[in-house]
Design a protein around this nucleic acid. Structure first.
Lengths: 234, 234
DNA sequence: GCCCTGCCATGATCCGCATCAAACGAGAAC
DNA sequence: GTTCTCGTTTGATGCGGATCATGGCAGGGC
């Protein structure tokens, strides 16, 4: 599963998050320590990476040194599908991460042998595309407050064990800012403001508790996709 | 080919833009008049659409009526890959458009019969994902001027007949604005400013000529992906 | 204990772009 | 020709978030 913005896929764990069926679980596993890189933009793309545990961020760097985080990913995500030849994103582990590798060279053979795998991969990359577009909409039109509220709700939904109460927010303020198209000072200010309003409580810098979920949802609401009924009326 | 932002794929027409090999050219073709919709967000996704000619825009609408254009597409693009079950974007023809349809129900059969088709589709959606991420970076970090310069250069590169001189800019100012995360007044002002500086010349509202391409490139440059050599130095 | 380093919080100021408003131009209908 | 409409251009003003600057806090090495 991944967050590439305001929305993440809401379907939770589905068959397509479980790759053991098609890959047979026989792929080599690698452990990556926190804050080290899995690949850089410009590196030759030899393999796809399947995230088994932990969190990574995907980002691009511009000439002037500015960065845009284009997505966060955790267990179930496949990394590297957006590239062709060379990686166009850099990928850094936020927490300790375990990945399995799928050699690019083996893909044609895997497609030929197992059409289900083709469908599974296509669905995965389609989701990532939808999520990237949702994030584009968030960064393009939402206010700083809305962006942050939407983001917090998204991350909270990824935590299935917590019943939407307490959850980990493993990335730094600067990562959140680079993802949301803000400065880290703005993120920090708005987080403080949300606490002052009694909407959230930071149990630590990297763990958050939603106290008033509804307030956040009301704020983020202006950014939700227009349902068809309303669309046709408008 | 598509623009989902500052970057479009630079490879020009490749084998994967030509779908006649795999689809056999036996798919039904439909003509869509300008400014009518091909599908709406929320519609059931029964088919993919293969654009044969003309331009379309893909967009999302928010509750408060704001819209984000998530991409423009022309000949060679496949539409609908980002969705699953229901369309998450709306798609409107900017110019008269000709599309062919690929029934979703036939996809498993096509994957099973022709693994090359699987690879082709995967490459197409991978490109769209990369382009969406590039646009995310543009909207997230670039100034209004940089966004517009990058956009003009992108569209100009799509016109292969024009040798980078004159080219069509078929979308309205408001569409460009909704794509770039700006207001149409800002787009209009910057277009006028580029003309005043002698960088471009508008032969009509929907046709543009690059007079000083380098100036635009210098402006947009700050937004280019950092090449690996520089990355490693920094 | 000490200092150093990395990350975060918060305050003061500034500027780019949104917003509000009005005028302009081209095309269509008549 | 006139008038209406739709999209664009241009101007005046204000605000949200960037920027610059300072201080705080936690962890690690010694």
């Amino acid at each position: 599963m991944c967050i590439a913005g305001g929305t993440l896929d809401k379907m939770g764990k589905t068959a397509s998050d479980d790759w053991s069926m098609t890959t047979g679980g026989r792929l080599p596993a690698i452990d990556i320590p926190a804050h080290s890189h899995i690949f850089f933009e410009g590196d030759e793309r030899r393999t796809l990476y399947l995230v088994e545990s932990g969190w990574v961020k995907l980002y691009r760097t511009l000439i002037d040194g500015q960065r845009q985080v284009v997505g966060f990913a955790n267990a179930g995500s496949v990394l590297g599908l957006e590239s062709d030849g060379e990686h166009v994103n850099s990928c850094e582990a936020i927490t300790p991460v375990k990945v399995r590798t799928i050699p690019i060279a083996r893909l044609p053979e895997m497609f030929a042998r197992d059409p289900i795998f083709s469908e599974q991969i296509l669905r995965q990359v389609g989701r990532q595309l939808g999520a990237a577009q949702a994030q584009l909409a968030a960064v393009g039109v939402q206010s700083a407050e809305q962006k942050l509220a939407t983001f917090l709700l998204s991350v909270s939904r990824l935590c299935d064990a917590c019943e939407y109460g307490e959850f980990d927010l493993p990335m730094r303020r600067g990562d959140m800012a680079e993802f949301l198209g803000l400065r880290l000072e703005t993120v920090s200010r708005k987080m403080s403001e949300f606490q002052r309003r009694g909407w959230i409580r930071m149990t630590s810098l990297y763990n958050c508790q939603l106290v008033n979920r509804e307030a956040l949802e009301d704020l983020a609401e202006g950014a939700e996709i227009l349902p068809p009924a309303i669309r046709q009326a408008g």
